[in-house]
Design a protein around this nucleic acid. Sequence first.
DNA 1: CGTTAGCACTCGTCATGTCTAAGTGCTAAC
DNA 2: GTTAGCACTTAGACATGACGAGTGCTAACG
Lengths: 337, 337
Amino acid sequence: MSEPRKLEVLRAIVEDYVHSREPVGSKALVERHHLGVSSATIRNDMAALEDEGLITAPHTSAGRIPTDKGYRLFVDQISAVKPLSQAERRAIQTLLEGSDDLDDVLERTVRLLSQLTNQVAVVQYPHLSRAMVRHIEFVLLAPRQVLIVLIADTGKVEQRVIDVGQDLGDDAIGGLRTRFLKSLSGTPLSLLPQALPAVVAACEPSRRHAAQALARGLDALASSTREERMVMAGTANLARSNVDFPLSIGPVLEALEEQVVMLRLLSEMAEDPRGVTVSIGRENPYDGLTEASVVATGYGPGSSAKVGVLGPTRMDYPTTMAAVRAVARYLSRILGP
Amino acid sequence: MSEPRKLEVLRAIVEDYVHSREPVGSKALVERHHLGVSSATIRNDMAALEDEGLITAPHTSAGRIPTDKGYRLFVDQISAVKPLSQAERRAIQTLLEGSDDLDDVLERTVRLLSQLTNQVAVVQYPHLSRAMVRHIEFVLLAPRQVLIVLIADTGKVEQRVIDVGQDLGDDAIGGLRTRFLKSLSGTPLSLLPQALPAVVAACEPSRRHAAQALARGLDALASSTREERMVMAGTANLARSNVDFPLSIGPVLEALEEQVVMLRLLSEMAEDPRGVTVSIGRENPYDGLTEASVVATGYGPGSSAKVGVLGPTRMDYPTTMAAVRAVARYLSRILGP
DNA sequence: CGTTAGCACTCGTCATGTCTAAGTGCTAAC
DNA sequence: GTTAGCACTTAGACATGACGAGTGCTAACG
């Protein structure tokens, strides 16, 4: 019994099953793939694969389907990343060019990726850790209420309303604004927590309290951008692959709606040297996603932000991986160095 | 055959069917509701209701279920708006208080409403037509690229990056900013288009071109907030009521993802004097929603923005209507006068 | 020793048939 | 206008059996 052939059999099973959605038997295998042996031999191989936990039979006399572990082996060792078709490459290029607003780019990206893969696409907003303070604005909404706007040089804007705890006039808020802006302009967001106390200390004592509140607000803003947000598209594709989620797509939708879950999932996915990381079925930490797989990769500076696709474990991994990788590359290019 | 009793029968059918998901027959009706007549009489009434197109039988010997028209009559004439339970009122109050950031409020609102009704909740961002310019900021990202930030007094912030077509320095952009701000601060967003040309005209000729571009950008920002956006929650509830969408929830998810569709739908729903508008099944203009109903109402100043719930036609209208109405009221109160 | 052919055995699926409960529509009587 | 009674329709549940796909095992083969 040869090892290489066993792997070949596994590959064939995964491919056929992904294609047909039906358990695949030994006879069908030898017909569709020209392995030079008989079905009986394949049966022996399959029995071995089953012993190793790579495939399983839904019931006594049905074909075999891959287990999570089988998919894992397939992804890690067997599959070759498919190159995208020319049409797909062009689609990516045309769709993502001609727009420089970050929101807009990400929006288009998810739509494109979900169409390309026929699955749910997710894009995490880029980390701002490398971003720097471009501008800070304080706007008085009421005597004690201030709207803080933090603008990063990446074009990202965050705002929040806070209560400063003491009445302020336009002059006071203007003074504070100038002071904060002078000291912090150009500061990397990641260094904001260290830089803020000095600014507060330099303020006139009478405004110290407000300054403190503003500093807290800015800190929260900077870190809230670290908490990250995401955009999503293609949830309707879940419904079509209804069959693929034996239980129901409910839990999956819940996970997607609980953005926190998805964000944690994405950031926990370690970077793979081959460029695309895959998390399969029960490998997912979240209970609702035990029948789902996530294919993701980093993009942009430092590849810190993630872009990915979520679908049923029974998914066309090579194609999906290719699409994700390609989209991430274009995205990185567009978002600049 | 008495008219009032016929209506009573329709009411009973709707209520039972909503409750049980099963076609309801004449015998079950007389048992569960104490109409003082026999099942044979009810049968006559039901035949009449069927002739009028208010109910229908899925097959020869099954009970009846309401048609869209039947639900319509039920909603319009029969149902009484249920008061919310004390617990629900408290939930609304506690959940929506203690937050003044618009995004945050709306986010909480949809979650609450989706939990309250066990369906998909949708909230449209308030129109800014009545909002005024609180602040304008221009930030130079590159010599020709400017980030425009428009802050309204409602706390809403919109931003966009534009190309000004000529190189500008920090001084120039600062001067422009001051000029725009001076002239436009306090201007209602709706009047922005009229106010902008004057500002541009007042600029030094050398910066006229950039000013033009900035004005266009501001105009676009103000109107892009008019185009509206929406927040949504509870899509997972669709999966649970899977049974209620015979076809699939796919088209529904698509409609929800195509926010344009939902926004048009919401804004087309005329204001109902009773405070809540309902659009039932095939009444919906969008093909994917022929098996869905939308319950919506306006909120905020002028009741121009909409908040609503989407679910299967077979829905508990009285309760849903009550929840939507209550949430809209609290929302209006929180967002101020 | 790996490969193969053959065969008994296991199950899921499908078609078929039967039975039952639910429910209707109609008619005749009240 | 209401009711009782009855014949009729039908979906759904259940049992039955034939069929086919597929396996595992054993014995033979190179």
